[in-house]
């Protein structure tokens, strides 16, 4: 029984990691668009963020898998779940980056400009590393949320922890035990993510503060 539920762990991790990576990467250009000086870009960025933060994840995953998936764009359940959750994560990460950006002292931009640093260097060498550090705690807590949200993938047939738990519970009539075990697995994955984020945050913080 434990083994059966545990078989879902790799899928839970895969959906979470893939969706988070898509979101973390896509969030950067999205944040840049959201803060662009060009009104059309700013509008598209803002519209994307509002739209994808307003749709329930379940609905979006259904939309991709049952909507687009039925004929228009043949995608697997895994792809559908990752796409749906990834696009929502991108909108949220863009907002996390935007918050972090405002926490970076304007003097950093002043100094970069006064030193004649090329803009690629300003972003890559100066701003991005500070941005990542500042967004780390919020991003980690979002990742933990995403881990739990990934259970949505089970509804379209991804054989993750929740899917297996549901399946075994129905066939053994031991729902209490089975779902208890599933919950335990989610906790066991969440805790290290949170711990790792705290550790990394403290490491990075120790450098920049006394």
């Amino acid at each position: 029984m434990i083994h059966g539920v545990a078989l879902g762990i790799p899928w839970t991790l895969a959906v979470t990691a893939a969706a988070f990576l898509i979101g973390a990467a896509l969030g950067l250009p999205l944040c840049a668009m959201r803060m662009s000086k060009l009104p059309p870009l700013r509008f598209i960025g803002l519209a994307y963020i509002i739209l994808f933060r307003s749709i329930p994840p379940l609905l979006l995953v259904f939309f991709f898998f049952f909507g687009l998936g039925s004929g228009f764009l043949p995608i697997s359940a895994f792809q559908g779940a990752v796409l749906g959750l990834g696009l929502i994560t991108a909108a949220n990460m863009a907002e996390i980056y935007r918050g972090a950006l405002s926490a970076i002292h304007f003097g950093q931009w002043d100094a970069s400009e006064a030193l004649a640093l090329p803009s690629y260097s300003t972003y890559i060498d100066i701003i991005a590393p500070q941005l990542i550090r500042v967004s780390l705690p919020s991003a980690a807590s979002y990742a933990v949320g995403l881990l739990k949200e990934s259970a949505i993938a089970s509804t379209i047939g991804v054989t993750d922890i929740s899917f297996n738990a549901n399946y075994i519970a129905k066939s053994t009539y031991q729902g209490l035990t089975v779902f208890g075990i599933a919950a335990l697995f989610y906790i066991m994955i969440s805790l290290p993510i949170a711990a790792l984020a705290r550790f990394a945050d403290q490491k990075l913080r120790a450098r920049v503060a006394l």
């Binding site: 002292h105 003097g107 950093q108 002043d110 100094a111 400009e113 006064a114 030193l115 004649a116 640093l117 090329p118 260097s121 060498d125 100066i126 590393p129 500070q130 550090r133 990075l204 450098r207 920049v208």
Partner: peptide
């Protein structure tokens, strides 16, 4: 900006880089 150096009231060193890196990076990039 290469002709004119500037020193600010709030120093504006790059906090995520060592002192040496702060001084070396602009030389490499500029």
């Amino acid at each position: 900006r290469r002709s004119v150096g500037m020193v600010f009231q709030s120093f504006n060193l790059f906090p995520h880089m060592s002192v040496l890196r702060n001084v070396s990076l602009p030389q490499e990039r500029v």
